[in-house]
């Protein structure tokens, strides 16, 4: 039994670390705040809260695996949603049937996703054709999208959504399954399929591991980079759409703290921006852990929110150290090998 556990944890370092973390978190909060933790309200909350940035994290995961990074996704999502919300606000009129309203909503969602795709194409081209480092290119685009958003909204929040749309954020499917979580689940399953069973997924890990080698193996790296950013930014825009429904409005700077949170989750899950590695199941475990920490800290009356950041940061360091020390081919060692 013990040897089996040992074998599993050696093969799946991040998975076992995250599972251990999850068990510890649940144990800790059960002991200290059992009554509050194990209530339906808390878990409904947790499963309603993480999908909006959880979806974004999955999007950015594709970028990371390909060896890129995206800093622009929140700003782009906000810009797209501003147009989407304005479209909905303008086209939903009093006395419309639910069917018609759903029609308008679908068009708005489509608008948002198309803008997301355009943003992805721009990111991809800047990086693969013009060879601008991904961090620089996407930070520049982040500024561009934020600027445009502020310009068209004068920095104000845009609201006026149909209640049918704002209900999404706290609707229960079958009475217990939060709708945002359902969306998250769908995207999760599709993404897992893409990574595991398609040639796209295979190529993605290849260009992430060594883009030069991939190029010489007749992989269209420009096409792959653009496609990856499109995928990333479209998924991130879906995350933004969920955020819009919980906040019943959108604004140029909503969710700016999610950029760092998504990156933190990915690194915690062993998806490093170095590229070529990472498993989506670990990403899921990391998302849940991060949300449990956040909600858990909020259960303690006088515990500063900074403790959540503190714990997140501490965990990140521990995970990075462990992955380096234990496998001997962790983050830093791997890098050295690559460059030699």
């Amino acid at each position: 039994m013990l040897t089996k556990v040992k074998e599993f944890s050696q093969k799946n370092l991040y998975t076992s670390m995250l599972l251990a973390l999850l068990v510890l978190l649940l144990l800790f909060f059960s002991i200290t705040k059992g009554g509050t933790l194990w209530s339906l309200g808390t878990w409904n909350g947790i499963f309603m809260q993480f999908p909006e940035y959880g979806v974004m994290t999955i999007g950015v995961m594709f970028c990371f695996i390909s060896g890129n990074i995206d800093m622009s996704f929140v700003a782009l999502g906000n810009f797209a949603c501003i147009l989407g919300v304005q479209y909905m606000a303008a086209n939903v009129t009093e006395g419309m049937g639910n069917g018609q309203i759903i029609g308008v909503m679908l068009v708005a969602v489509l608008i948002v996703m198309v803008i997301g795709a355009i943003g992805g194409v721009i990111n991809g081209l800047l990086i693969s054709l013009l060879n601008i480092p991904p961090v620089m290119a996407t930070i520049a685009m982040q500024l561009v999208w934020t600027g445009v958003s502020v310009a068209i909204t004068e920095g104000k929040a845009v609201s006026g959504l149909p209640s049918l749309y704002t209900d999404i954020g706290h609707k229960m499917v079958f009475g217990f399954l939060p709708f945002p979580f359902l969306i998250f689940l769908i995207i999760f399953v599709i993404s897992a399929f893409l990574l595991k069973y398609t040639t796209y997924g295979e190529k993605l890990y290849m260009i992430g591991t060594n883009i030069k080698a991939a190029k010489f193996s007749a992989i269209n790296t420009t096409g792959m980079t653009v496609a990856t950013f499109v995928l990333c930014d479209v998924i991130c825009c879906i995350g933004s759409l969920l955020m819009v429904s919980t906040m019943a409005s959108t604004k140029a700077d909503y969710g700016t703290s999610y950029v760092m949170r998504c990156i933190l989750i990915l690194v915690l899950a062993g998806v490093l921006p170095d590229g070529g590695m990472g498993k989506i199941s670990n990403v899921f475990l990391a998302i849940i852990s991060i949300q449990i920490i956040a909600s858990g800290v909020n259960m303690f009356p006088s515990m500063n929110t900074y403790y959540a950041s503190l714990i997140w940061g501490g965990l990140l360091i521990i995970v990075l150290i462990l992955s380096t020390k234990l496998t001997g081919n962790g983050f830093f060692v791997k890098k050295r090998k690559k460059s030699s």
């Binding site: 409904n44 955020m243 906040m247 909503y254 999610y258 909020n298 006088s302 929110t305």
Partner: peptide, 25 residues
Amino acid sequence: VIYKGPAEVDAAAQVQIMTDLVNQG
């Protein structure tokens, strides 16, 4: 009194904290 706000000035982070508090009762 539970005094708890976001670590950054961000409406989304603030709404998340309010959601936690409302759900926790």
